[in-house]
Amino acid sequence: MDKNTQGIIYMQEGKFEEAATLFNEVIEQNPIDAVGYINFGNLLMHMKDFEHAERFFNRAIELDGNAATAYYGLGNLYFEQSLYQPAQQNFQKAMELGLEESDVYYMLGITLQNQEQFKLSLPYLLRAAELAPGDDEVLFLYGLSLAQANHLKDAKSTFENVIGMNPEHSDAHYNLGIISIYDENIDEALAHFNEALRIQPEHILAANGKKNIQALLKENDR
């Protein structure tokens, strides 16, 4: 196992000092290889040392202008600091350079979501879901963007697919409850809110939704 691979394993295990030692050795042994700088940048980002992480990613790009994962790293770094415009630019650059993974499409999608560009986020979140067909959270975020873009029919079927993958997804039930209200199906909405609360008793939004429906039903009974 090479030092980069072992360093990544250490980083995933939270052994940051051990990972730093290995990545530093990689850079010393081959100072013109961008990979060591990218890995060290990812490590520094995990440690919330954004200033130094940015330097390492930029150094990687200086060495290899086609290093897509360096741009992806910068995108994550800016996203973590809520700097969504530069995050978006770097995720797009990573894609232009051929990075074809679910994560980069997902991150660009939620970056656009956070800028309230819901319709623009849709193709990226859809592609992320296609590339990670077993990931219910990616599919849920796609459904959320559909709902935010007012594509409620498609959002409903997407949330139903999420529940098919993970019946215990409380937020999918909550959002189905909201869509049921728009469809004027109060009984179905209440059922979804109850299910969300069964899964997550402290789900405040579901509790408020249930409370409002119960108040409406009480008002109608008068």
Rank of each mutant, 00 (worst) to 15 (best):
M1F: 08
D2W: 02
K3R: 08
Q6L: 03
Q12F: 05
K15T: 01
A19G: 04
A20P: 00
A20F: 04
F23W: 09
V26P: 11
E28L: 03
E28A: 03
N30E: 15
N30D: 15
N30Y: 14
P31Y: 09
P31M: 13
I32F: 07
D33P: 08
D33E: 13
A34E: 12
Y37S: 09
Y37D: 12
F40P: 02
G41I: 08
M47K: 14
K48M: 05
D49N: 02
E51P: 06
H52S: 12
E54R: 04
E54H: 05
N58K: 10
I61T: 05
I61V: 06
L63M: 12
N66P: 00
A67H: 02
A68P: 00
Y71L: 08
Y72T: 02
G73Q: 09
G73W: 02
G73F: 04
G75D: 01
L77C: 01
E80Q: 14
Q81M: 05
S82Y: 05
Y84W: 04
Y84I: 05
Q85N: 08
Q89G: 01
N90Q: 10
F91Q: 11
E96M: 03
L97N: 00
G98V: 09
L99A: 03
E100C: 09
E100L: 06
E100I: 03
Y105R: 11
M107H: 12
N114Q: 12
E116A: 06
Q117N: 15
S121L: 05
S121M: 01
S121E: 06
S121N: 07
L122I: 03
L122T: 02
R127L: 08
D136S: 10
F140S: 09
F140Q: 09
L141R: 14
Y142W: 12
L146R: 13
L146F: 08
L146P: 09
A147H: 04
N150K: 11
L152I: 02
K156D: 08
K156V: 03
E160M: 10
N161K: 12
V162Q: 08
G164H: 01
G164P: 07
G164W: 01
A172T: 13
G177E: 11
I179S: 06
I179H: 08
S180E: 09
S180Y: 05
S180L: 04
S180N: 11
S180H: 00
I181L: 14
I181Q: 12
I181W: 07
Y182L: 12
N185D: 13
I186K: 14
D187H: 08
E188H: 06
N194W: 03
N194R: 03
E195N: 13
E195R: 13
E195Y: 01
L197F: 03
R198E: 13
R198C: 07
Q200P: 07
E202L: 10
H203T: 01
A207N: 15
A207I: 14
K210T: 10
K210I: 10
K211C: 03
N212T: 09
A215V: 08
A215C: 05
L217S: 10
L217Y: 02
D221C: 04
D221F: 00
R222C: 07
